[in-house]
């Protein structure tokens, strides 16, 4: 499980066909989460599955060179922090916890190029936080398991 495979077919199918598609599909599920089925947790699970697949074929030492466990721990913490800050800032502005309507996000309409309400943007920020947390924690679980395997 932790050794590198040299098969050209396996490498091509995983790295060129499957993993980019899984990542794009995960991001699609993330950004369409408010309107259609999907959301942060689902997108995180899908992208984590893609990254675990890439690590399975690349082997333990090559797989972790791009996105190491230390970086993933930071990403997971950043995800939880994004969620908490998005929840607490409306409380500081006088509304209740996670009440996105009062967040000052009107400037984002100019960036996005089309009209989105504060509420939709707030939900998206929370979803992005959940995505980062779920995705990082799932890959960290895999990394710890394979670290133990390659140590023996």
């Amino acid at each position: 499980m932790t050794e590198q495979h040299d098969s050209i077919i396996l490498n091509f199918v995983v790295r060129v066909l499957l993993v980019p598609f899984i990542f794009v599909f995960g991001l699609y599920v993330l950004v369409h989460g408010e309107a259609s089925p999907g959301g942060g947790f689902q997108a995180g699970a899908i992208v984590a599955a893609g990254l675990v697949l890439a690590r399975l074929t690349a082997g333990a030492e090559h797989g972790e060179s791009r996105l190491s466990t230390g970086v993933l721990v930071w990403l997971a913490s950043a995800g939880i922090t994004i969620y908490l800050v998005t929840g607490i800032v409306p409380m500081l502005m006088g509304a209740s916890y996670l009440d996105y309507g009062v967040l000052p996000l009107e400037w984002f309409n100019a960036v996005a190029g089309h009209e989105r309400t504060n509420r939709a943007m707030g939900i998206f920020i929370v979803e992005a936080g959940i995505f980062m947390g779920v995705f990082s924690v799932l890959v960290i679980m895999y990394d710890h398991l394979t670290q133990r395997l390659s140590d023996d």
């Binding site: 947790f41 689902q42 699970a45 899908i46």
Partner: peptide, 22 residues
């Protein structure tokens, strides 16, 4: 569909890898 997406990605994808690793 929400639950189905999670079940397919976690149940059929990642837990299998984690089980085999264990």
């Amino acid at each position: 569909v929400d639950v189905a997406l999670t079940e397919a990605a976690l149940g059929a994808g990642i837990t299998v890898v984690l089980f085999i690793g264990a």
